[in-house]
């Protein structure tokens, strides 16, 4: 019987991500997996489960908690992580505020998104983590298109995009000096569509936020924000109930919803295929300036 030794693109991407996860376990002393409860970090966590099966992933998971969560995310997080059998570390932005490490933004567009960076870097240093695994993808944003799989951070947690290590073949250089750390992105080569197709193929449960539901929202700067305890409706704004879903799940103050009737994985995939806006098009944090993502990443953002 003749057959070809070809993998389809999802198997190829999975194999690459598993390879990267195993390199992380082997090259670092104390890695951690950043888990936000968003679909990308859910994928990374699922891949970590597969990479070390039948053993458990040899590193803890960490949630950087802004305190501005959708309740659905937290419930999902606890169940998902218990299921994998990983240890959960929670780093809280509220704690950073209480300790005076950061000062909360004010005004109607106040967000804790930027504050997360300090909490994250403090937690990395307090726990002695030398590598933080994340779900960022190169197709998300133009600054991320130049990101390495193994991305070096100096002892202030900063990224220097002009001075990145060349990365060739499948050889990753994770050497560093004390106090420095790495960010590693196993999904670098995945697109939003790949993530959705993989979730379907692997039958991975997702938080309900990703599917169409009725929710009270307010339109602000071209984005639909969910009305929660953390998003206040200004006098000239009007809250209304619409059928929406979220394309990314992050801090409730800056994650916009899109109007949608897609209430199943197939419907979401069809919607993604037809979409004419990038998923980060709903992220208010990226719209602050042309290089908003690069500027935050340089400071140590995810």
């Amino acid at each position: 019987m003749s057959h070809s030794y070809n993998l389809n693109h999802l198997d190829h991407l999975e194999s690459e991500a598993i390879y990267v996860l195993r390199e992380v376990a082997a090259q670092f002393q104390n890695p951690v997996l950043l888990f936000s409860g968003g679909k990308d970090s859910i994928c990374v966590a699922h891949l970590a489960k597969k990479a070390f099966w039948p053993a458990r992933p040899p590193f803890p998971f960490m949630h950087v908690d802004t305190g501005h969560n959708f309740p659905e995310t937290i419930a999902y997080r606890d169940e998902f992580i218990a299921n994998i059998g990983a240890r959960l570390v929670v780093a809280s932005v509220q704690d950073s505020i209480d300790k005076g490490r950061v000062v909360e933004e004010k005004g109607p567009n106040a967000s804790r998104n930027a504050l997360q960076t300090v909490t994250l870097l403090d937690a990395i240093s307090e726990n002695g983590f030398d590598c933080a695994l994340g779900g960022a993808r190169r197709d998300e944003e133009k600054a991320r298109a130049k990101e390495r799989f193994f991305s070096h951070r100096d002892d202030f947690g900063q990224w220097d995009p002009k001075n990145q290590r060349p990365e060739l073949w499948n050889i990753f250089n994770g050497r560093m000096s004390p106090g420095e750390h790495f960010r590693v992105f196993p999904l670098s080569n995945w697109t939003e569509m790949d993530v959705w197709q993989y979730i379907k193929k692997e039958n991975i449960p997702l938080p309900s936020l990703y599917f169409a539901h009725d929710r009270e929202v307010v339109a602000r700067q071209g984005t639909l924000l969910a009305v929660t305890d953390f998003v206040t409706v200004a006098e000239d704004e009007k809250a209304e109930t619409r059928r929406v879903r979220f394309r990314t799940v992050g801090d409730a103050t800056c994650t916009g919803a899109v109007e949608s009737d897609a209430d199943s994985l197939d419907a979401v995939i069809a919607e993604v295929a037809a979409a004419r806006q990038t998923e980060r098009g709903t992220r208010a944090d990226d719209k602050r300036s042309e290089t908003a993502m690069e500027d935050r990443k340089r400071q140590g953002y995810f």
Partner: peptide
Amino acid sequence: TIDVAYRYFA
């Protein structure tokens, strides 16, 4: 252009 940029399409 300074660095290798990775782009995706299908």
